[in-house]
Amino acid sequence: MFPRPIQQASPAAQWLYTIALPVALVIWLFPLLGVALTSLRPASDLAQGNYFGMPSGIAWENYVYIFTETPIGQYMLNSLWVTIPTVIGAVGLSLMTGFALAVYGFKGNILVFFLFVAGNFVPFQILMVPVRDLTLQLGMYDTWYGLALFHIAFQTGFCTLFMRNFIKALPFELIEAARVEGVTEWRIFWYIVLPLMRPAIAALSVLVFTFIWNDFFWATVLTQGVDSQPITAGLSSLNGQWIAQWHLVSAGSIVAALPPVLMFFLMQKHFIAGLTLGAVK
């Protein structure tokens, strides 16, 4: 193990390490802590310039206000409406493409695979005008499904990379054996490979959920109104209205950040497996 375990160090060093950990954490998360505290500060404190001193009270009403007086609840629902179909769609499609690319040695296999991988890395801007135009033409501008369809297609690239590598690592003898028994290809996919894919499905689901929930660019390009804008775009437009009302901006930020944070805490192991692209095992 590197570095040398702290337990082997001198008591003074161990003591120092125990202190350094929480101190470093507080410094590291300072912007987050500051915003979390500001979100609970009464507006009157901010008006009097009391930004960092003792708050005069805990103002849950900031949260009540953003949920009752602004459409933030609607924005959150819109986000869910985009995020959940995208997770299902992208994971479903990439299970199939990943299976095809991992199991069959057809001509052009590697080319198709690299197309998916490369497409995943392109800057969004090169897609922006045509995708927006297409969405308009299909009458899906400013709808959750217009946004979700694009996300499904784009995320399929990343998911295919992951699924294909995951299936490649499965024992191929399983598939060979099934073929000898005369099992059809579709049933091999459904009854043999799919049950083994659970960890990969979990990892990609949490990752895609986070990516899509946090997407801002496409939300801005493909949606407009309160009825379909996801939370990221919604928060940005609310920020424009709440000029310098930091207690509200902070509360909105915390609310917007909560779902992916919860997802991460609940599914930590899978999340990290996904992020390392399965390449760093």
């Binding site: 199939m96 493409t97 690319l101 069959y104 369809l149 690239g157």
Partner: peptide, 18 residues
């Protein structure tokens, strides 16, 4: 089989990315 498995994903990827 591989082309059938690829078809939906490739279709979406072609329309929205390539």
């Amino acid at each position: 089989a591989p082309w059938l498995f690829l078809a939906p994903g490739m279709f979406m990827f072609t329309v929205y990315v390539l």
